[in-house]
Amino acid sequence: MKKLAILGSTGSIGTSTLSICESFPDRYRPIALAAGQNLDAAFEQCTKWRPQVISIATEELAAKLRQRLKEAGISSIEVVYGTAGTVRVATLPEVDFVVSAIVGVAGLEATYAAVKAGKTIGLANKECLVAAGELIMAAAKEHNVALLPIDSEHNAVHQCMRGGETREVRRIWLTASGGPFRNTPAPAFEHITPAQALKHPTWVMGQRITIDSATLMNKGFEVIEACRLFSLPPAQVRVSVHPQSTVHSMVEFIDGSILAQISVTDMRLPILYALAYPERVDATPASGLQFDLTTLSQLDFSAPDLERFPCLRLAYEAAATGGEACIALNAADEIAVAAFLEGHISFLGIPRTIEKVLQQTSGRHPSSIREVLEADLAARACARDVISQQFSGVLR
């Protein structure tokens, strides 16, 4: 039985992980949860799963949760809060496996602490490797920790890489749906609205990641993440637009062979793969995870247009520079996406803002998580200044 800590237990990856625990109760048990600000969901998870420890965002929410648990007659759960609480969840001695699914850099310190504590990590937080990949990968090597990707694309690459040695890989191919605007004429991009950009053709996701998919920045982050996870330079990580989203990624080997991973578009599958690795668990037909090959009538692949989607180009440039460039890429994108959703800048204002911030960012390589977080804050401030000066927007 693997004992799990789930960072981001009330989000989509967290709830999918709990669904896996429910389907395989003899294999996986959640004993530590980090639940963010969703008090009601945190309480429900406590009553159902009875973890040893749960962390919530603030001291005030922690007090409310303790009171609700007391009224429910539950006194065995330790309630903690804030960053220190999340670190406590991630490093609980009894935990075997940590699912890192907190969105953004908020989960960075806890994930790094879990690596240093020698925990196996199921990584669904791409910002950790984008912003602090150099530090995290070095710590993972030092402490002999396995980082198992949960993002569907990197999970697919991980599966395909089992077909050969790293030295035998010519390149890896990350597939992208292309988002809602893959066929939109370039002149129309200036007039794209938030409502249009939030209509993803394949996946149901949070607002930021949906906008990032529309700009292809999400794919850019995945390029950086792939470089870290698989020790490859940016030139060996390619992107292919694949509207069907059936082939999740591919690995091309030096003999010309290409291995592709095909499965349903359900995040429970990569989560289960990571939890079970190096085994594979039998997913019955009732699970809904089996793929019907008769539905494979057409598979299309094409190169992304870097002129229409400059965010992907900026990500490749940041990947080549590394260090603070990757931190700034992520931070500026988060601020710019928020500004777009609030109507302060246009859709193309997102890459324009990011490019301006990158131009003002040094190529330094932080030597600690504290320096990463400082660079993150500086890049966010720079992005707000760029938006204020260039677009006359006022951010809330």
Results as ranks from 00 to 15, higher is better:
306 L>A: 02
300 D>H: 12
243 P>F: 02
301 F>S: 12
297 S>F: 12
310 P>K: 09
280 R>T: 11
307 E>P: 05
231 S>H: 09
284 T>F: 15
291 F>I: 03
225 E>C: 10
318 A>R: 00
326 C>A: 08
231 S>G: 09
266 D>H: 06
282 D>Q: 14
278 P>L: 07
314 L>P: 00
223 V>T: 09
303 A>H: 10
225 E>Y: 03
305 D>P: 14
280 R>A: 06
220 G>K: 05
235 A>E: 14
270 P>C: 11
222 E>L: 10
218 N>R: 13
267 M>L: 06
248 H>F: 12
320 A>L: 12
228 R>K: 09
256 G>I: 15
255 D>H: 09
222 E>T: 08
246 T>P: 01
274 A>W: 00
285 P>Q: 10
224 I>Y: 02
225 E>Q: 04
290 Q>Y: 05
289 L>H: 00
315 A>W: 08
256 G>D: 10
301 F>I: 13
249 S>G: 13
250 M>W: 01
245 S>F: 04
314 L>G: 00
232 L>F: 04
234 P>W: 11
237 V>G: 00
275 L>Y: 08
269 L>D: 03
235 A>M: 08
274 A>R: 02
235 A>L: 07
221 F>D: 10
324 E>H: 14
291 F>H: 04
298 Q>P: 00
243 P>V: 02
282 D>K: 15
258 I>C: 11
300 D>M: 08
305 D>I: 01
281 V>I: 15
304 P>E: 02
278 P>M: 09
242 H>K: 08
218 N>F: 14
